[in-house]
Structures are given as structure tokens and as C-alpha cells.
């Protein structure tokens, strides 16, 4: 525990610190509420997207099963070799209530049958459909990745802010208040002692005066 000087200056300083801590707590509470509002808004979007992801994944898997059945896995693997490629995603940054958030640019990875790399003749519409559905799933995944990162960052910041508010509320402010009470008591005690000492001196002086 830090050394506490039971002086009037110290008392004033501690009182100022309490005011500052209370102001800080109020500000942090406002920040937490604002972040929570933003969090809930994004949460709705995430829930909607995760439902969409489940649906598109189920559709994609069904198309895959149909293509595997009719065209065969070998044909699918062959077509997949022709369509193999990379997807680049543009990521920039933004701030929400001072929290740095990555922004993933929405990118449509959907291609037409002619853009996929395999020839139209010799492939089938089932293979097109598999590619189409998985591209759609990828679109949702990219969208979701962006929003989910935002959500994680906001969640972490809300927790951090809540911890700070709690620390101010439960530890810092009560400790400061306790210190103020202690210094006040010490100062009161000291003033009572001074008063008693003065009275004692006065009494002694009066006794000496009477003896003379």
C-alpha cells in the first residue's frame, strides 16, 4: 500500500482524485453502453448471416452430392483442378468509439461458367451448380468474416471497458474514499489533540499564575 500522508494537502488531492475517478467511470459507462448498442446491432446481422450460411452450405452440399453421384468424383476433381485459384480480399481499418476495427471489402467471388476455367463442353450443369453454390457460400463466409471480426473486437473492448468500470467502482473509488476518511479522521484527531494540548497549556499557565 502506498504511503499515506495525513495532511490537508493530501486530503484535497485524494478528493480531487475521487472526482476524477467518478468522471472517468461515467465516461467509461457511456462508452460501454455505446459499444453494447453497436454490438447488438452487429449481432443481429451475424445471426442473419449465420442462418444464411447454414442454408447455402446445405444447398452446396446437396449439389455436390448430386454431381458426385451423376458425374462422378473423378470428373469433379478434374473440373476442380481447372477452377483452382486464389481470392484476394481487401482489408482496411476504421474506428468505432476509438476501437480499431478491420473492414473487409465486400467482394463477389461468383463467376460465370465461362470464367471458371473448365471448358463448357465436356462438363455439366451439375458441376456449374456445385461451383455456383460454393461460390455463394464463400461470399457469405467473406461477409461473415468481416462482421465476426468486428464483433470479436467490440466484444473484447466491451469486456475491457466493463473491467475498468468495475475496477473504478469496486476498487479505486472505495479505496480513495477510505483514504479520505482515514486522513479526515487523522486530521480531526490531530486537531482534537492540539485543542487538548492548548487547553492543558492554558490550564498550566493559569495554575502557575495563581501560585504566583
Amino acid at each position: 500500500m502506498e504511503e499515506l500522508h495525513t495532511t490537508r494537502t493530501e486530503l484535497l488531492q485524494r478528493r480531487q482524485q475521487i472526482d476524477l475517478a467518478q468522471q472517468g467511470r461515467d465516461l467509461l459507462e457511456k462508452k460501454r453502453d455505446a459499444l453494447l448498442m453497436e454490438f447488438m446491432k452487429i449481432m443481429g446481422e451475424v445471426l442473419g448471416l449465420s442462418g444464411k450460411l447454414r442454408r447455402t452450405a446445405a444447398e452446396a452440399n446437396f449439389s455436390l452430392a448430386v454431381a458426385q453421384a451423376v458425374d462422378g468424383t473423378v470428373n469433379l476433381r478434374s473440373a476442380a483442378m481447372a477452377t483452382h485459384g486464389e481470392i484476394t480480399v481487401e482489408i482496411t481499418g476504421t474506428h468505432i468509439m476509438g476501437v480499431p476495427i478491420p473492414e473487409v471489402a465486400r467482394k463477389n467471388v461468383r463467376r460465370t461458367a465461362l470464367e471458371r476455367g473448365y471448358g463448357i463442353i465436356g462438363s455439366s450443369s451439375r458441376i456449374d451448380e456445385v461451383a455456383e453454390k460454393f461460390e455463394e457460400e464463400l461470399n457469405v463466409i467473406i461477409q461473415m468474416a468481416a462482421i465476426e471480426t468486428k464483433l470479436r473486437r467490440l466484444g473484447a473492448e466491451i469486456q475491457k471497458t466493463r473491467r475498468r468500470v468495475n475496477a473504478l467502482d469496486q476498487v479505486v473509488i472505495p479505496t480513495l474514499k477510505e483514504q479520505v476518511r482515514y486522513i479526515s479522521m487523522a486530521l480531526d484527531e490531530r486537531s482534537r489533540e492540539d485543542l487538548f494540548r492548548l487547553k492543558k497549556v492554558k490550564k498550566t499557565l493559569e495554575a502557575k499564575k495563581a501560585a504566583v
Partner: peptide, 20 residues
């Protein structure tokens, strides 16, 4: 077509052969 696709994408020999 499968062989050309595989070589175009530099897929491994085994991967190509398993698709023939």
C-alpha cells in the same frame, strides 16, 4: 483434359492420376 488441367495448375502426379 484432366492431365492438362493438372499440369496447368501444377498439381501433383498422384492427384492427376487419381482423377483419370
Amino acid at each position: 483434359k484432366t492431365i492438362l488441367r493438372g499440369l496447368h495448375q501444377a498439381a501433383g502426379r498422384d492427384q492427376i492420376i487419381s482423377s483419370l
